[in-house]
Structures are given as structure tokens and as C-alpha cells.
Simulated scan of single mutants.
Amino acid sequence: MTVSGQPKLAVGLFKRVDRPVVVAFGCIVALLLVGSLYSRSFLSPEYLLQQLKVASFLGVIATGTMIVILLGQIDLSVPWVVAVGGMMSTAATGWGPAGEALAIPVGIACGVALGLVNGFGVAYLRIPSMIITLAVNAVAQGLMVVHTGGFSPQDSSSPAMRTLATGDLVFGLPNALIVWAVVGAGAIFLLNRTTFGRAVYGIGNRERAAYLSGIDTQRIVLIAFAIAGGLSAFGGVLLAGYASKAAQGMGDSYLLPAIASVVLGGASILGGRGSYSGTIAGVILITLLQSILSVVQMPEAGRQIIYGVVIIAMLLLYGRESRAR
């Protein structure tokens, strides 16, 4: 019985393995080996810890992106929601001691507000997510230009923002990495252990069926976009803390990497399928890829082309798998 049962057990374990996640982690190992050919420091603990720290900012932003993609939607407002989070949190520090204490909540609250606009447009007005989020991105950009008068923001980040982004208070681990771990743990619990998470997957698989089963699909979509907006803004807060100040367009380089990180980890861009472990692998993979492209001095245009090709390839691969199912 034991011998005959071993092949069945092996087949069962193989089926449980999330193939895209395994492939993503395999690519991470390959990138590290390729990078080590250029510099031995690619395999040093210091370098790996630094890359995880850099990945943390993208990881926080990609967490919100994943929740929206699981719905079968897309959020194109990420660039300027990130900028709003960073710029409004640094602006709050100019309000005095109370402003410094409220800087982080103010930045996140502004992102949540923009996310609610996105969610309301998608859930209640039935505007395609691509259109409404692109419009909100443009509105956010205009608001920030008005806020700064078109000039670079002069406000600096608060001590708490700098501590979160650059400090290492626990066993030498970067605080940013710990923040990402907390955000990730919250996302895993939310998606796997709550009715909200099950509703997100249900809506992504078939929204009408989810509605007929009693799920308040409009409320779930609204909350999901609000969470995504808050996390994008929080990413902006961390970036402002890392640089000690905010900048216009500081989130422009995070839209495609955030989407690519999610789809690289196996999440279907059509919704309904994906795991957070895959997003973790995708974020680390994209971060290492960015590092190697910097070493070989790949221009920014070339990097954007690579991200676009990755998204198209994953859409073709996982999109066909979803239809086959």
C-alpha cells in the first residue's frame, strides 16, 4: 500500500505546486547567478539585503495592484497616487509637530480617497477600470501641480517617515522590509481567511455568479480599490522617507513593474487566480532585473519595453489557461 501509494502522492504534490511561483523563484536564482558574473557582490548578504529593502517599496505598491487584478480590473492611477501619498505626507510636516505626527496617515488617507473615487466609478457608475483610473491619475497630477505651483516640492519628510524607510531597528533588518512583511501578512490573511478575500476571488472568476450568490459585489470592488489606493500612497510615503523629500512624477516608474510583478507571480490578469507568494517572487524578480539592467546601463526606455513584453507574454500564457478552464 505504501509503495503503490507513493506515485499517487507524488502526483498530488506536483499538482499542488504553483508552477508560476516555482518558475519565478527559479528565475530569481538564475538572475543572481548571471549578476555574479558581473560582480561577486551579487551573492553577498549585504547586496541581497539591500535589494530586499529596495523591493519593499515596490512590494507594498504591488500588494494593492494584486488585489485589483484579482477582481479582473486594472489600476492605472498608481503613478500619481504614489506621488500624492509622498507629496501630501511631506506637506503635512509643514504644519508643525501635529503635522509631523499626522504626516503618514494624511498621505495614506489621500490615497484611500482617490481609491474610493476609482472604486465608485467602477462599481457604481460601471465605468471600465482602465478609463476611470487613467482619469483619476490625470486629476491627481493636476491637483499636485496646483498644490506645488508647478515647482518641485520644498517640504521634507518627517523623522517617522525616514525611520520607516531607512532605519533598521530589529536585528539589522531594514524597517522597510519589515513594513512589507506586515503588509504582506495582512494581505495573505485578508485574501485567504476572510469573506472579503473569497469575494474578491469570486468576483474575479465570474462577477455575475458572485452577485447571484449573495455577494455585495459593488461594496467589495469599492473597498478593494480603496485598499489599493491606500497602499500605493503608503508606497509613496515610504519613498519620500527614503529620499527625505517627495518629487513630482516619483511614482511614474512603478506602474509597469507593479503589474509585471503580479503577473510574473502567476496571477491571471483576467482575475480570479493568483497567490501572494507569487507576487513576492515577482517583486524580487523585477527588482533584481532592474539592478542587472542598471549594471549593464540599459536606458529607461529599454526597461519599459521589457516590462511591457513580460506583461504581454504572461497575458497570453495565463489568459489562454483561464479560458481553457
Rank of each mutant, 00 (worst) to 15 (best):
S4D: 09
G5F: 11
P7D: 02
K8N: 08
V11A: 14
G12V: 00
L13W: 03
F14Y: 09
K15Q: 09
K15W: 06
P20R: 07
P20L: 08
V21Q: 07
V21L: 12
V21A: 10
V22D: 01
V23E: 00
V23Y: 14
G26P: 02
C27D: 00
I28S: 11
G35R: 09
R40S: 15
F42Y: 14
S44Q: 10
P45I: 09
E46C: 08
Y47W: 12
Y47V: 12
Q50A: 15
S56W: 07
F57C: 02
L58G: 02
G59T: 02
G59S: 03
G64N: 02
I69Y: 03
L70G: 05
L71P: 00
I74M: 14
G86S: 03
A92Y: 10
A92M: 13
G96I: 15
I104P: 06
I104C: 06
I108K: 04
A109P: 00
G111N: 02
A113E: 01
L116T: 00
N118G: 08
F120Y: 14
G121R: 03
A123D: 05
P128G: 09
M130N: 06
I131F: 15
L134V: 10
L134E: 00
N137V: 00
A138K: 05
V139S: 07
G142M: 05
G149Y: 13
G149K: 08
G149M: 09
F151S: 11
Q154T: 14
Q154H: 09
D155N: 12
S157E: 08
S158W: 05
A160G: 01
M161W: 04
T163R: 05
T163Q: 06
A165Y: 08
G167A: 15
G172C: 12
P174C: 10
I178H: 10
V182H: 06
V182R: 01
G184M: 14
A185F: 12
I188Y: 15
L191C: 06
L191F: 11
N192L: 04
R193M: 12
F196V: 03
F196E: 02
R198N: 12
V200Y: 11
I203L: 07
G204R: 04
E207S: 14
E207F: 13
A210M: 05
I215F: 01
D216P: 05
I223V: 15
A228I: 07
G229H: 03
L231I: 11
A246Q: 04
A246C: 04
A246K: 01
Q248A: 13
Q248I: 14
G249H: 13
G251I: 05
L255A: 11
L255E: 07
L255Q: 10
L256Q: 04
S268F: 06
S268A: 10
L270P: 00
G271I: 04
G272D: 08
Y276E: 00
Y276V: 15
S277T: 13
S277N: 07
G282M: 04
I284D: 05
L285H: 08
L285Y: 01
L288D: 00
V295S: 04
V296H: 13
Q297K: 14
E300H: 10
A301Y: 05
R303K: 13
Y307C: 06
G308T: 12
A313W: 00
L316N: 07
L317P: 00
R320K: 09
E321F: 09
S322M: 09
R325F: 12
